[in-house]
Computed example of a mutant assay.
Amino acid sequence: MCYQVVERYSVCRCLYYKHAVDPCQAYGQRGHTVQEKTVLVGYACQLHTSHRPDTHPVPGHGVLPDSGYQSGYGG
């Protein structure tokens, strides 16, 4: 069975990164499907983070960084 890993933000479920398909021997044959595996990363995307009310405006608190995987951001 073929798998495709899809990373989504844990709160809003917006797409963070969609990996290439890991093909099996049956890849491309009629009726064969690709099973999507979801991995939750970070907190919320930039769009949903900016609309989130900040009840405690303390620098560095409130928004968790993403996993850093494939984003170039290490924390």
Rank of each mutant, 00 (worst) to 15 (best):
Met1Val: 11
Val5Thr: 10
Val6Thr: 13
Val6Ala: 10
Glu7His: 01
Arg8His: 15
Arg8Trp: 01
Arg8Gln: 14
Ser10Glu: 11
Val11Gly: 00
Ala20Pro: 01
Val21Thr: 11
Asp22Tyr: 14
Cys24Val: 10
Gln25Cys: 12
Tyr27Trp: 02
Tyr27Asp: 05
Tyr27Gly: 03
Tyr27Arg: 01
His32Leu: 05
His32Gly: 03
Val34Thr: 15
Gln35Tyr: 03
Gln35Gly: 03
Glu36Ser: 11
Lys37Arg: 14
Lys37Leu: 15
Lys37Ile: 12
Thr38Tyr: 04
Thr38Cys: 06
Leu40Asn: 14
Val41Arg: 14
Val41Pro: 10
Tyr43Asn: 10
Ala44Trp: 08
Ala44Asp: 00
Cys45His: 01
Gln46Gly: 11
Gln46Glu: 10
Gln46Met: 06
Gln46Ile: 14
Ser50Arg: 14
Ser50Cys: 15
His51Thr: 06
Arg52His: 15
Arg52Tyr: 02
Pro53Ser: 00
Pro53Phe: 01
Asp54His: 14
Asp54Lys: 14
Asp54Pro: 07
Thr55Val: 05
Pro59Leu: 13
Pro59Ala: 09
Gly60Met: 06
Gly60Phe: 03
His61Glu: 09
Gly62Pro: 02
Gly62Glu: 09
Leu64Pro: 03
Leu64Asp: 05
Pro65Ile: 13
Pro65Phe: 07
Gly68Cys: 05
Tyr69His: 03
Gln70Leu: 15
Gly72Val: 02
Tyr73Lys: 09
Gly74Lys: 03
Gly74Pro: 02
Gly75His: 13
